[in-house]
Every structure is written in C-alpha cells, then in structure tokens.
Amino acid sequence: TTYKLILNGKTLKGETTTEAVDAETAERVFKEYAKKNGVDGEWTYDDATKTFTVTE
C-alpha cells in the first residue's frame, strides 16, 4: 500500500511517499524521515487517503 507524508515544517515543506504493509509501518518510516530532516510537530493521519501530515 502506498502512504503519503505531507511536511508542513517551518523551513521545509513538501511531500513524499512510501510503500508499507500497514499504517503503523509507514508512520515509523515517515517519523524517521521527518526527524532526519529536522521537522518535529503535530502528526495527523487520514485513513481514507492514507496520508500523514506533520505540522510545525
């Protein structure tokens, strides 16, 4: 399944996708990605669109 991440950081904005077996796995991948890019904020997930959003 393809999951999407929307980054709404103070200095970094953008989108990325990952293939994962479930939302929990995708969330771990995306949180590591955000951490590596210095983005830390509020996380939300929309199951209907398989989209995570992190907003600083």
Rank of each mutant, 00 (worst) to 15 (best):
R28V: 14
A48E: 10
D40A: 13
A23S: 10
Y3L: 01
T49F: 06
L7Y: 13
T25N: 10
A34Q: 02
K50A: 08
T25L: 15
F30Y: 02
G14Y: 09
T16K: 15
Y3M: 01
E27F: 14
Y45Q: 01
T1A: 08
T1H: 06
V29T: 11
D46S: 12
V54M: 08
K36C: 05
D22N: 15
T17A: 05
A26G: 02
N8M: 12
R28P: 03
T44C: 03
K35I: 10
K10W: 14
K31P: 00
E19M: 15
L7R: 01
D47T: 08
A48T: 11
V54F: 05
Y45P: 00
D47H: 09
T1M: 13
T44R: 07
L5I: 05
K4R: 13
Y45D: 00
E56Y: 08
Y3A: 00
D46H: 08
A34G: 04
K4M: 05
T49E: 13
N37P: 01
E56G: 04
Y45M: 02
L7Q: 03
W43R: 00
Y45V: 02
K4F: 06
T51I: 10
V54I: 07
G9N: 04
E32K: 08
R28C: 04
K36I: 14
E27Q: 06
A20Q: 11
T25P: 02
K31W: 11
E32W: 11
K50L: 12
K4V: 12
V21T: 09
T51Y: 03
T49S: 13
G41I: 01
G14F: 13
E32C: 04
T16S: 11
L12D: 08
W43V: 02
K10V: 14
E27A: 08
T55E: 09
I6G: 02
K10Y: 06
V39K: 02
T55G: 07
Y45C: 01
E42S: 14
V39E: 02
A23C: 05
V21H: 11
L12C: 05
V21E: 12
T2K: 09
N37K: 09
V54Q: 01
A48K: 12
V21A: 06
T1W: 15
E15T: 11
A23K: 15
A26C: 02
A20E: 14
K31Y: 09
D46V: 06
L12W: 07
Y3T: 00
V21G: 14
R28I: 10
D40P: 05
L5E: 00
F30S: 01
K50V: 04
R28N: 14
Y3S: 00
K10D: 10
T1G: 09
E27K: 07
E24T: 10
T25E: 11
G41M: 02
V29G: 04
E32S: 15
A34R: 01
W43M: 06
D40Q: 10
T49P: 02
K4H: 08
K31A: 07
T51D: 01
A34F: 03
N8L: 11
G38C: 04
E15S: 10
I6C: 05
L7N: 02
I6L: 15
I6E: 05
T2S: 12
T16H: 15
G41V: 02
L5T: 01
K31H: 12
K10L: 11
T18K: 04
T55D: 11
V29I: 15
G14E: 15
D47K: 15
F30I: 01
V39R: 02
A48Q: 11
T16M: 11
E15D: 08
D22Y: 05
G9I: 12
E15N: 03
K36H: 06
G41D: 02
Y33R: 03
K13A: 14
E15L: 04
K4C: 03
Y45T: 01
T1R: 11
E24A: 10
T51E: 06
T17F: 12
D22F: 05
E24S: 07
T44I: 11
T17Y: 05
K10I: 15
K50N: 15
L5P: 00
R28K: 12
D40N: 13
T18C: 04
E24P: 09
F52W: 08
D22S: 09
K36D: 14
L12R: 02
K10C: 06
T55M: 07
V54C: 05
G41Y: 02
T49D: 05
E24M: 15
V54K: 01
T53K: 09
V21F: 08
D47N: 10
D40L: 14
T1V: 05
F52L: 01
A26K: 00
T44W: 09
T16N: 05
E27I: 07
V21I: 09
F52M: 03
T55A: 06
A26S: 03
E56K: 02
T55V: 08
T49V: 13
L5G: 01
W43D: 00
N8T: 15
Y33L: 07
W43A: 01
E27D: 10
E42L: 10
F52N: 00
K10S: 14
D47W: 06
K13H: 08
T18I: 05
Y33P: 00
E24F: 12
T44V: 15
V54S: 02
Y3D: 01
A23E: 12
L7P: 02
K31D: 03
Y33T: 04
D40V: 13
K13L: 11
N8V: 12
E19R: 10
T16W: 14
Y3R: 00
T51F: 03
K36T: 15
D46L: 06
A23R: 11
V39F: 09
D40H: 10
A23V: 10
T25R: 13
D22I: 04
T17H: 12
I6Q: 10
V29M: 13
D46N: 14
I6M: 06
E42M: 07
T2C: 04
D46M: 07
G38D: 13
L12V: 13
L12M: 14
N37F: 11
T53H: 08
K10E: 13
L5D: 00
Y33K: 02
I6N: 05
T17K: 11
G9V: 14
E42T: 10
T18A: 08
K35F: 08
E56C: 03
T49W: 06
G38M: 09
K35D: 11
T49L: 13
T17L: 13
I6F: 10
E42W: 08
A26M: 01
D22G: 05
E19G: 07
A34K: 01
F52A: 01
L7W: 14
T16C: 05
L5W: 02
L7I: 15
G38H: 14
T1N: 08
V54W: 03
E56D: 11
T44D: 10
T55Y: 08
D46A: 07
T1E: 09
K31C: 04
K4W: 09
D40W: 06
A20G: 05
G41N: 01
K4N: 08
K50H: 14
T2D: 08
T51C: 03
T16V: 12
E32P: 02
T53Q: 08
A34E: 02
K13C: 04
G9L: 13
V39Q: 04
K13T: 15
T11D: 14
T53N: 06
T16E: 10
E56R: 02
D46C: 05
A20T: 09
F30E: 00
N8F: 06
T11N: 15
F52S: 00
T51Q: 05
D40C: 04
V29N: 06
N8E: 11
L5H: 00
G14H: 15
F30A: 01
E42P: 07
L5K: 00
W43E: 00
F52H: 02
K35W: 13
D22L: 06
Y33W: 12
Y33S: 02
W43G: 00
E56P: 03
E24C: 06
T2N: 12
T2Y: 07
K13V: 14
K50I: 02
D40K: 09
E27P: 00
A26D: 00
V21K: 13
V39W: 09
N8S: 07
E24D: 06
L7A: 03
T2E: 13
K35E: 07
T55L: 10
T2M: 10
E19Q: 15
Y45E: 00
E15A: 06
